[in-house]
Design a protein around this nucleic acid. Structure first.
Length: 503
RNA sequence: GCCCCCAUCGUCUAGUGGCCUAGGACAUUCGGUUUUCAUCCGAACAACAGGGAUUCGAAUUCCCUUGGGGGUACCA
């Protein structure tokens, strides 16, 4: 990396509490975190809550909860070697910088730019600007602010001010020029100021400063050295560099990450794609945070040493921001599910129990239907077939509830195996099966198979369906062992009755 | 419209001029294990968008075309 004007690597994530925690935000946070950790620097958190209309406390909480769940934490932003003018206020509990608390500081810099002539007041009304744009479009020109107030006469300015006419503050971009930066992910970048849509507003008529301005002032105060964000910020970066320069601040390094798309090749967004963009959805469905993190990082970052499965810590040891892909990643829930299954299969039993209990309606930890040893055998039996924990009950419901077979296909299998059910019942009545032994039922089934000259699927599938109602599950001996003699007998009889009545 | 970005299997990607008849993972299909299913294991399928240029040699460099995306606010 090039020699930095910053004493320490500092990155940040700066979400705004105007919606749920978005997968893209998490991925951006992750790359910033990884970069900071790799370079032994800090990773900070700032809440961009200046839009009072749209910011909501519930979103703040959801975002914070989400990061906590994902095990993503940030460092203390206070610093002893802050440059002059880098006032650091807006700190709240948990090392969070709240942008809204920093209004006075933002204003101070507006005043500074105004007094230095690097920014100016624009009194043009909304109607006036709409008219201007309409005219431009009619003339087939590119609609943009024409910098009409850049050189307002002192007399006019004084007049408007005395009238109390509302105004916005705009940054004077000066003569057209290329704004250049060396993007850490994309290489040399160049955007001309003439394509920025005219001198940008930095303070609204309400007195509120705008995003692009607040970001620069706050990133300076937080001494952010590297900014990694989505490529949808590309033109913001050009504006922000102009603001950095006007303010006389050192410009940080930038890197623009590819976006996450859905199959329709559109930016993954809550509006278009609903809940799949929200972290909370995954939490509620029983995904493991480690799996989600691994998937998200892996979408645009690969490393041969790391392989497919890695933790944040492992990735931080190797992380190379320049290896991040430039092209968008298409969101693939099947791959996420694979990651989740991998992580689930590696879990200790205590974690399996906790997660299953959280998502199951069968009170797994307190049930009196089964001992905890039996619950353990049951859950270990299905551990490898879970994609996510909210599926737990469809794998274990037959241990707790009776079922009725209605599907034609399954019914057919059962009819073909009617004789097996009968023989099994006879064996049970003759005390030929020891249910305390997990292999006894299986052995009995085998002996039935020998008598009937049946084996494989023809033998096992009807038996499996008759006692569990399902075509898949753990070892059939284990199922019978857990269910016990009474229940097995009851279910076999019920099936037998049903088959007798329908045939 | 204008500006900017991107372009290898269906998907995520490896690949920075010869090691590429392009490697891995997910998905899919087919086998094997499991006397069943799931799991697991093995295999197969499958891509350098198109056209020029540079070069002894191009997936890799350059240009054009095409396609896709992002931005273009007194939102963040």
């Amino acid at each position: 990396m090039s020699e930095s004007r910053f004493k320490k690597v500092r990155t940040r994530i700066a979400p705004s509490p105007t919606g749920n925690l978005h997968l893209g935000t998490v991925r951006t946070a992750l790359y910033n975190l990884l970069f900071a950790r790799y370079h032994g620097g800090d990773f900070l958190f700032r809440l961009e809550d200046t839009d009072k209309e749209r910011s909501k406390e519930e979103f703040t909480n959801e975002i914070l909860d989400g990061f906590k769940w994902l095990n993503i934490s940030w460092d203390d932003p206070s610093s002893e070697d802050a440059p002059e003018g880098a006032e650091m206020t807006g700190l709240s509990e948990g090392h969070i910088v709240k942008q809204s608390v920093r209004e006075a500081i933002h204003k101070k810099y507006i005043t500074k730019l105004l007094s230095e002539g690097k920014a100016y007041k624009c009194f043009a009304s909304k109607e006036e600007l709409d008219e201007m744009r309409a005219k431009q479009q009619a003339n087939k020109e590119i609609p943009r602010y024409d910098n009409r107030s850049r050189n307002l006469s002192e007399a006019d300015q004084a007049k408007f001010e005395s009238e109390g006419k509302p105004f916005v503050v705009r940054l004077n971009l000066g003569a057209d020029r290329d704004i250049l930066w060396n993007d850490l992910i994309r290489g040399e970048m160049s955007i001309n100021t003439k394509d920025l849509g005219g001198d940008p507003v930095i303070q609204k008529s309400s007195g509120q400063v705008l995003y692009n301005f607040a970001v620069v002032v706050d990133d300076f105060a937080m001494q952010i050295s590297h900014i990694f964000r989505g490529e949808d910020h590309l033109s913001n970066t050009a504006k922000q560099i102009a603001i950095y320069e006007a303010l006389g601040f050192s410009v940080p390094e930038f890197g623009h990450l590819p976006l996450i798309f859905t199959k329709d090749k559109q930016k993954l967004s809550k509006r278009k794609h609903g809940d799949i963009a929200s972290v909370d959805t995954y939490k509620k469905q029983g995904y493991l945070p480690e799996a989600l993190v691994n998937y998200l990082v892996g979408t645009s970052y690969n490393d041969e040493e790391l392989g497919e499965l890695f933790s944040i810590e492992e990735a931080a040891d190797e992380f190379d921001i320049e290896a991040v892909s430039k092209s968008p990643a298409i969101y693939d829930i099947k791959k996420l599910n694979w990651y989740n299954r991998e992580y689930i299969s590696k879990l200790d039993y205590a974690d399996i129990l906790n997660n299953c209990a959280e998502f199951s309606k069968f009170s797994l930890k307190t049930t009196d239907k089964y001992s905890q040893d039996q619950i353990e055998a049951m859950l270990k039996g299905i551990q490898d077939s879970l994609d996510k924990f909210d599926e737990v009950d469809i794998h274990i419901d037959y241990f707790f509830e009776d079922f009725s077979v209605v599907e034609d296909k399954i019914l057919k299998t059962l009819e073909d195996g009617k004789i097996i059910v009968e023989k099994l019942l006879i064996l049970i009545d003759a005390d030929g099966i020891n249910f305390a032994d997990p292999v006894s039922f299986k052995n009995a089934l085998n002996s039935v198979g020998k008598i009937l000259e049946l084996n494989g699927k023809k033998l096992f599938m009807p038996a499996r369906i008759a006692i569990s109602g399902k075509t898949s599950g753990p070892d059939i001996g284990l199922i019978a062992h857990l269910l016990g003699e009474e229940k097995i007998k009851e279910r076999l009889k019920k099936i037998q009755d049903k088959l007798t009545n329908t045939v």
